[in-house]
């Protein structure tokens, strides 16, 4: 190494670990989410939380590894089917049913991920979409998924066999805990040594290779982690809404979650949460206008992209000059 006599002693290093303002945002989010069920329907809030997790899973790939998956409905939807089946047919308690869902999402993630990461850019997106379509047709044909009807009347059961989740408020607290556990895990992943390498791959893959990183192994792990997170979202959703249907595996679901991520801001940690909240609230309050929801959603998306290209949170982050 080149030795230099004048190495400043007190280098102005950013303190590692969660910066204080991120901690504040986390606490603020926790506070808001703790009061929210008293102001809004708990079920609506739960829907937001599930989709926020789902969007975060997409963003782990898109924002932090530079991989646009257009097939995340596969992991979300299959997890939702398996969790519903496990709870209804096997009679498992909700947390175990969700774990079964995550298991299938991880399995699919391993298989599809290993194949998809060999492609780049738009080809990666197309391969993930193709796999997701295969999963869709499987769900359409397989007997246990209930075809067009889906799996209905899934029992919510009792958490650990002890705490019944029939009450919406109780259920909300359960989902909130799951949500924060996942969010913190995701934060750790992104800020781990592994996460650093992911960011390097996203910024400049060729350079990361030239530094000696075997980038496909990192992409693969990111893919599986992302699928797992989508699985948590899908499984939880099935238990909460007592329903798993073809909508969950359909390609429009994949598209919608990418949309949420982009609206919120894909290079940001908190963006997908904001994006998911916005889209879910919009769909909820505009439900009365029927098919026009899609049109309005499209317009909002176009407006967002034109106004703030980095998404809402990305825009705020660039104004504050701080990563959010």
């Amino acid at each position: 190494m080149p030795t230099h006599s004048s190495v400043p002693v007190a280098a102005p290093f950013r303190k590692l670990g969660m910066p204080r303002y991120h901690l504040m945002i986390m606490l603020g989010l926790a506070a808001v989410l703790s009061v929210a069920p008293f102001l809004l329907y708990p079920i609506l809030m739960i829907k937001i939380l599930c989709f926020a997790l789902f969007a975060c899973s997409v963003n782990l790939l898109l924002g932090y590894a530079g991989l646009l998956s257009f097939g995340h409905a596969a992991y979300f939807g299959m997890s939702s089917y398996v969790a519903a089946h496990a709870a209804k047919v096997w009679g498992l308690s909700p947390e175990l049913a969700i774990l079964c869902g995550v298991g299938i999402a991880v399995l699919l993630g391993c298989i599809f991920g290993a194949l998809a990461i060999r492609r780049q850019g738009i080809y990666f997106a197309m391969v993930t979409l193709a796999f997701a379509q295969m999963v869709y047709f499987f769900a359409l044909q397989a007997p246990f998924t209930g075809g067009e009807d889906g799996i209905q009347k899934v029992p919510r059961g009792a958490l650990f066999g002890l705490i019944p989740l029939a009450d919406d408020k109780t259920l909300y607290w359960f989902v909130l805990v799951v949500f924060f556990a996942c969010l913190l895990a995701l934060y750790r992943i992104i800020h781990s040594p592994f996460g650093q390498v992911l960011k390097a791959i996203r910024d400049n893959e060729a350079r990361a290779v030239s530094l000696g990183y075997r980038v496909n192994q990192y992409k693969f792990i990111a893919f599986v982690l992302s699928a797992a997170l989508a699985g948590v979202a899908g499984g939880t959703k099935a238990i909460v809404f007592q329903l798993a249907t073809l909508t969950d595996v359909y390609w429009t679901m994949s598209g919608e979650v990418v949309l949420m991520t982009l609206i919120g801001g894909m290079y940001t940690f908190f963006g997908p949460i904001v994006g998911a909240a916005l889209v879910v609230l919009m769909q909820n309050y505009l439900a009365s206008v029927g098919d026009w929801v899609t049109v309005i959603q499209g317009l909002v998306f176009v407006a967002c992209v034109l106004l703030f290209r980095e998404g809402i949170v990305g825009f705020i982050a660039s104004k504050l000059k701080r990563p959010l």
Binding site: H4, P8, A11, I189, F194, Q217
Partner: peptide, 22 residues
């Protein structure tokens, strides 16, 4: 290799002196 996605970024702080020198 850094596959340890469960580790904190803090484990990297031991690299800072050398990074700073470079």
């Amino acid at each position: 290799d850094s596959f340890d996605f469960w580790c904190s970024e803090r484990v990297l702080s031991s690299l800072h002196d050398e990074a700073w020198e470079l």
